[in-house]
Amino acid sequence: MATPDFIRTLRADAGHQLLWLPGVTAIVFDDAGRVLLGRRADNGKWSVIGGIPDPGEQPAACAVREVFEETAVRCVAERVVLVEALEQVTYPNADVCQFMDITIRCRAVGGEPRVNDDESLEVAWFPLDGLPDLHETGLFRIKQAMAEGPTWFDRG
Rank of each mutant, 00 (worst) to 15 (best):
Val80Pro: 00
Leu86Ser: 09
Leu82Thr: 12
Phe99Glu: 13
Asn93Arg: 13
Gln88Tyr: 06
Val83Phe: 08
Ala72Thr: 05
Thr71Ser: 09
Leu82Tyr: 08
Val67Gln: 09
Val80Thr: 12
Arg65Pro: 00
Arg65Asn: 05
Cys62Ile: 05
Cys75Glu: 00
Val89Arg: 15
Arg65Met: 02
Ala85Gln: 14
Val67Trp: 09
Val89Gln: 15
Cys97Arg: 15
Val80Arg: 11
Glu66Gly: 03
Arg79Gln: 02
Val96Tyr: 09
Leu82Met: 13
Gln98Lys: 08
Val64Gly: 04
Phe99Val: 07
Ala94Gly: 06
Val81Gln: 04
Pro92Cys: 11
Ala72Asp: 14
Pro92Leu: 10
Ala72Ile: 05
Gln98Ile: 05
Val81Phe: 00
Gln88Arg: 15
Thr90Ile: 12
Glu84Asp: 14
Cys97Trp: 14
Ala72Glu: 07
Ala63Cys: 00
Glu87Phe: 04
Ala77His: 06
Leu82Gly: 03
Leu82Glu: 15
Arg79Ile: 06
Val96Arg: 12
Glu66Asp: 05
Val89Glu: 15
Val67Asn: 09
Leu82Ile: 10
Val80Gly: 01
Glu84Trp: 07
Glu87Tyr: 12
Ala94Pro: 01
Val81Tyr: 03
Cys75Lys: 02
Glu70Gly: 00
Pro92Asp: 11
Ala63Gly: 03
Val73Met: 01
Glu69Arg: 06
Ala72Phe: 07
Gln88Ser: 13
Val73Ser: 03
Val89Thr: 15
Glu70Arg: 03
Glu69Val: 00
Arg65Phe: 05
Val96Lys: 11
Val83Met: 11
Cys75Ser: 05
Val64Glu: 09
Val83Trp: 08
Val76Pro: 04
Glu69Pro: 09
Glu70Cys: 02
